[in-house]
Amino acid sequence: MMKTFTKIKGALIIGITGLSVMVILGIIAIILVVVIIGGKSQFSWEFLTSFPQDGMTKGGIFPAIYGTVLLVLIMSVAAVPFGTITALYLTEYAKENSWIAKTIRFAIRTLAVVPSIIFGLFGLGFFIKFVGAGMDNAFLGGRLVWGQPNILWASLTMSLLTLPVVIVSVEESMKTVPRELREASLALGATKWQTIRKVVLPGSVSGILTGSILAVGRGAGEVAPLLFTGAAYYLATLPSTLHDQFMVLGYHIYIMSTQSANVDQTLPIQFATTLVLLLLTFILNLIGVVLRSQIRRKQK
């Protein structure tokens, strides 16, 4: 009696877990199929490399790709060093249970769950209205240059959003540098900083890399923070300075599907743009996952 019950329970659990997996796989498959079928007629080299034409009903999406790449580059330049230094402090210098370490960890956790639109508002309020406008008033006699949405403020806002991801993954990889190696270095009379520079950092390079790629993958797909901080509806030229606005893939999809003159006509363009964005984030995440698994293998 008991035995059959256990068997049924086992079968039920296998069934439920299997079904959940199928549902998730199914959703991914549907998204991919729909996007690929809808966008494949538009997807071409031409589409990737040319500007939108005729009120964005024809042509390509090159400015949006360019803007997205530029955005994630500037974002990484800000987030990766800052995140690495924070992780360094947490793993090497802060005492595990000191109130300051606890506070920092709490702040990171909180930062990670703040809705992205809030980051957008913060960027608008802090970077544009406070820092940017302050710079204009202080150095440019009030001429409006930095006190408006642009790619710099958008990237910095985005770097705040991705900072938790960077910190956590760099911290993880620093923790995996074996204690024995740190001790070997210290026992040779190396200072703490020498040990960090010559043993800990080289040992966690791949973790830093993984962290940045995951952050970039996250940043490339975000739209909400950019609404307030620098994404443009349409630009005839590419951004050439840090105080230019820019086009970005995610936002491009949004406006094409809500504010275009003829939404139905541009449907293939929307699908193709979605495909590009999906591919971009997918490739970035794949690289991150592969790197991470290689680090894990190396540690065994």
Binding site: E183, S185, L186, A187, L188, G189, V199, G203
Partner: peptide, 18 residues
């Protein structure tokens, strides 16, 4: 730091740097 230069240590598990 100076002390550890004068008093070296060999550990149980060999721990060469990579």
């Amino acid at each position: 730091v100076n002390l550890r230069k004068r008093v070296g240590m060999v550990f149980q598990k060999s721990n060469p740097f990579s």
